[in-house]
Design a binder for these strands. Structure first.
Lengths: 230, 230
DNA sequence: AAGTGGTCTAGACCACCGC
DNA sequence: CGGTGGTCTAGACCACTTG
């Protein structure tokens, strides 16, 4: 239908059938424009789409090369837990466990260099049963509003997403044995695995918040899909 | 420097400082073009960038709206394990454990509907120690070449990535207790957690391969970062 | 130095979809 | 129906980076 989609499909086909094998160089934009009889901008549109998909790389003067596919890129989406639970048709519940103000020494990972921190522990429930334990530190220097928020009715996660702009988030995903806190609050037995999502949120080099979200491994997994390039 | 970057930054600023709060509608492209005194195409470039970043949504006639940020999107990149190990400066090792041809009944998840399958079990080592256990099923109907490949010197993972084009990959990340196979081959003790990466690879609705990659949780985690929108 | 991709313009027409 | 974003053109100039 749209020229650039056909062109992208054709180029993809040539990559897949080894007409342009991994590592090889594609013709210039102008050559492609002539071949497909379209404007250069239309070729750029198609190639940009393939760059996003991670299939080709482009550098000035060097040209356009087919990437040697060595890894699988996909888009990871970790929603606010309330939305995830509600969209599954289950009932969401929330309980604040504790909330205190600490000095920086509480931050063992060195993410916060110097700041007064708020430490919040909260539980998210699915159909009345514990589902996610949220263990969070908030930089009060950067987010002073958080000092006066009790988090009794809204979770820190949701409050922060609504209130605070961020510029980058680093996420760690890992497996652990349930900690004492996990066992107590997630109501699982000692020796069970938990799935951990840890996030560090930053606004232009200023650390805003760090959170450890733990889940019973039997009830939680993360799913992600590559964009279907066709 | 480049107009579209400045424009994107300005718009981002207005979103962050609530000039255009979540849910509100931005001016049309032509209005913005007039305000910033650039061509409409330049405005489109800036807005497209924000769409990719997940900050705004656009629909014909409805206009451009600020997204109510309810989740964090990031790009997940799971490399071939050999490259990951080698780039960390460690030495990579590989060992084939078993390779057989099975009937479909081996596929308990129903990913492969009907096909003759090759089942391969292999171990990836880091500095001589077990690091990743690869448990893979390959659709021989779709990838007949795999029937004659012994996988004695190259891992199925790497062979497939080099040989087979795919169109989509679904990835599951989860925590489990080590299975008997995990305990035996990863040389961990019973009752330890493992981190599982499971992938289902498809070419235009045809299932190609499914793999379960297990790792000692103490040695493996996944890291991902959002694109830094500034 | 020169060739390549990157940005921008000023226009045209189209397609979707909300009113 | 009409207003919005989506696509496309034919040009121009620029900036990077490799040989």
């Amino acid at each position: 239908m749209h020229p650039y989609e056909d062109i992208r499909a054709t180029i993809l086909e040539r990559i897949n059938n080894q007409t342009w094998p991994a590592g090889s160089t594609l013709p210039h934009e102008e050559q492609l424009a002539k071949e497909f009889d379209v404007a250069r901008g239309t070729i750029r549109r198609a190639l940009s789409s393939l760059v996003e998909a991670g299939l080709i790389e482009r550098r000035r003067k060097a040209g356009t090369r087919v990437v040697d596919r060595r890894s699988h890129m996909s888009t990871l989406n970790i929603p606010i837990i309330r939305h995830e639970i509600e969209s599954s048709g289950a009932q969401y519940g929330y309980k604040l466990l504790s909330s205190d103000i600490h000095s920086p020494e509480k931050d063992e990972t060195g993410f916060f260099k110097t700041a007064s921190l708020k430490h919040v522990l909260a539980l998210h429930l699915k159909d009345g049963r514990p589902f996610q334990l949220e263990d969070r530190l908030i930089n009060l220097t950067a987010i002073p509003k958080a000092r006066d928020e009790s988090f009794k009715t809204i979770s820190p996660n949701e409050w922060l997403v609504a209130q605070v702009p961020y510029s980058s988030i680093r996420t760690y995903l890992r497996a652990e044995l349930a900690s004492a806190l996990d066992v107590t609050h997630l109501k699982i037995t000692t020796g069970r695995p938990v799935f951990i999502v840890e996030r560090q949120t930053t606004l232009k080099t200023v650390p805003l918040t760090r959170v450890r979200l733990s889940h019973d491994a039997a009830q939680y997994q993360v799913v992600t899909e590559t964009a279907d390039v066709t």
